[in-house]
Structures are given as C-alpha cells and as structure tokens.
Design a protein around this nucleic acid. Structure first.
Lengths: 154, 154
DNA sequence: TTAAGTGCAAATATTTTGCTGTCAC
DNA sequence: GTGACAGCAAAATATTTGCACTTAA
C-alpha cells in the first residue's frame, strides 16, 4: 500500500518544545510511535508499541500524553471530532488538513490544492460567523490509472 | 426538538423493515432519537433521550441496537478507508456526505451548502482525471454562540 | 408458536485520578 | 532546586455478555 510521503521526523517534538512543554523519555517514545504510524492507532495500540521501546511505560502516561497533544492540536482525537464516528483513535493532525483524494482501488493518496477551498472557508467564516480551527476536504473515488478497471463501488 | 431541515421521518425504521429486521418498541424509540438529533450523540446521550420516551429502556438494548444499525450501515457507517471497531458517537449515515461544520465546544453540527464545493469537485474531476465516488468537507471550530467562551484549553 | 429481543446483573474494557517519588530544565 | 511528570493502584466510565423472561411476526 502506497503513500510514503516522508514526514518531517520529530516534528511533533519540536512543536512541543516550541510551546515550552517539557520533553520526557516517555513522551519522546509516544511521539515516535505516533509519527511513524502507518495507520490510526487507539490508546491501547499506542501503549503496546511504546512499551516495546520503553517497557515500563504506563497507560496513564499514554492517556495523559494523548490528551496533551490533543489540547495543543497536534493529534486529532477522533472521538472528539468523530469524523468517522469510530471513536478513540488518534493520528497526527497535519495529514488530514490538506485536501486529498484517495483512490478506492489502489489506495493511492494525492493531495490537491485549490483556491476554491479557501474561498469556501472564507465564505463560512463570514456568513456563518464560525471560527474555523481546521477544515478537511476528503475525496474518494478512482484515480486516472484505475478507471476502467474499477468495477464495483461498495 | 425542532429540526429545521426535515428529514424523511422513519427512514431508518423503513430500512430495517426492508431488511426483514424485527421492530420493537425500544428500537422505534432509539431510531426516533437518532433521527431527530440535531447533533452527534454518544451512547449515554441516546440512552438518556430514549428513556424520556421509554423509561424502562436498558443500556444494553441501546448498545445492541447501535451495533445492529452499524452492521447494516445505517448509522455512522463505515469509514472509507479503515474500517474498525466501534465508537463513541453515532449519527445517521447520510449526514456525513454533506458538508458540515462541527462546533468543538458545544458539539452542534450545522450543514452548509456552497456552490464552491461543487466547483472544486468539478475541478478535481477535470484536471486530475479522478472519478469521484464521495466527497466530504468537514470543518471544525467554534460556532457563533460559543466564540469567546471557547478560549481556554488546558 | 417461537426465534429474536429485552432487562437485569455481573463481567470486561477503557479512561481518569490521587498520591508519592523522580527527573527535566 | 523546584515544578512538572511518571508510575502505581484504585476509582470512575463505558461496553459487553449470560441467562430467564417477553414479544413481534
């Protein structure tokens, strides 16, 4: 499964340092788990992976760290936002803030930029008096290469 | 509970009947709660609201009904890419394909329509040769009523 | 009638919290 | 040195399950 967009390693940690937040060994471990994750993880999975690096790490520390990251907008607690309704999963936030389209057949993800999206956001802020914290535009379908070979869509 | 936008009432129930699933008083109550909800509800909220109509209703029944609805794709539905466990929040499935904004403080969801979104989709289809199956545009932030009182995080 | 559904209570699972000793800065 | 943090254990929440009794179809 594709999509290997290199992420700036250590970005989360730098963000925390930039906010004057103390970095501990445990936090470093947890951040690394989240940064290198290839899929969304729930708290238990994060704990399990973190424990491979740091066996003594405690669940409470994981929960507290996730909450910290959420407060600072560095991860999305999907149970907060429920974008999927699935709940209690965590992932880095940045990835989803960029508009992207996912091919339902080959799984490839492409980003796209469009001024229209910014205009839409401006429109919402102005007309609805809504203060936007984040916006996601997500498209699913079939990419050029997969069209034609794409049979059914659920 | 006034829903400004009238949704076809009883649609969930009809869907279940259509699938040959038995309708009980408790299920009818729960479906009504979900259908008339103006925001996303978690299991406890659904239970509380359902209990106003049917005081004896049990949490286990709520959980079992939610699971049933999920299995049949009537609530929450699946996420597009990673399907997984269960969740904390539930909503009618149809809502999510429409552009909406969620207030991070009060949890209220408002839909909005914008021609700009359709234009963006057209743009993607044309320029990227991408066949769109679904598109979601989701905004999180603070609604007019919650602004100001929302400053704090910690 | 009778399989499916409900309530109840107890079992699990998940998340939070109070406290104390420790470590990052 | 000191205030923030981690670990531990216990509490608070949330969800699931076994079983006997009901009920929709």
């Amino acid at each position: 499964m594709p999509t290997s967009k290199t992420r700036e390693s250590g970005a989360l940690q730098r963000a925390l340092v930039g906010k004057g937040i103390r970095i501990t060994r445990q936090r470093r471990t947890i951040l690394a788990v989240i940064e290198t994750a290839t899929q969304r993880l729930d708290a238990a999975q994060i704990l399990r992976k973190a424990a491979r690096t740091d066996p003594g790490i405690d669940r409470a520390t994981v929960y507290r760290t996730l909450k910290l990251l959420q407060r600072h907008g560095l991860v999305d607690g999907l149970d907060l936002l429920h974008e999927t309704g699935e709940g209690h999963f965590y992932e880095r936030r940045a990835e989803r803030d960029r508009p992207h389209m996912t091919c339902l057949r080959c799984g490839r993800v492409q980003e796209f930029g469009s001024k229209l999206i910014d205009r839409t956001k401006g429109h919402v802020e102005r007309d609805c008096h809504f203060y936007i914290v984040f916006a996601r535009f997500e498209i699913g379908g079939y990419c050029a290469a997969c069209q034609g070979s794409a049979a059914k869509m659920r």
